[in-house]
Amino acid sequence: MTLNPNSVYGRIISELHGGEKLRSCLQCGMCGGSCPSGPDMDHTPRKLFAMIAAGQDDEVLRSNTFWYCVSCYLCTVRCPQEIPITDIMYHLKHQAIQAGLYTTDAVDFSETFIGHVENYGRAFEFGLATQFYLAHHPLGGLKMGPMALAMLSRGRLNLRPTRIKAVRQLRNILNKAKEIGARG
């Protein structure tokens, strides 16, 4: 079958290493049965694959399924057809972001995290907590307050980020990678 190269299905197959294995899905439900956050997904991974095959792209990209993926790879190691399911979830996040079809905070969480990495070369837990929670969960952030304090008092949160020496080198590498990624 020839797939529309711009469809969700077509993009998984052409852009993702190992993505063509999605064609061999048997709809057995091993992934859906194994997923630790399965109960909270609006569609199980298996069902999402059926929807992808049926061309329901819009509904697929609006789904919370891949945003609830915890990247634990349990589905991947159990899949009887060796479909790289976790990688497909990553790719669907990527597609949903590009299409602007997401309603989750997860993107901002990831982007805040990445912002630190790109600026400092290291993750910055305190900064992540403050920026992300202030922006998205001011009230939730209050609940987090005591927790953060407890961590601070135990020396488990640094108030300042660590910066690597070769930040410029790292940025050059990442910018180049983005450029290569964009040319496809």
Binding site: V70, S71, Y90, H91, K93, H94, I97, A106, V107, F109, S110, E111, F113, I114, V117, L174, A177, K178, I180, G181
Partner: peptide, 10 residues
């Protein structure tokens, strides 16, 4: 687990 969801090559 964050970077892979945004952009895989970087």
């Amino acid at each position: 687990t964050e970077y892979f969801s945004i952009d895989s090559l970087p």
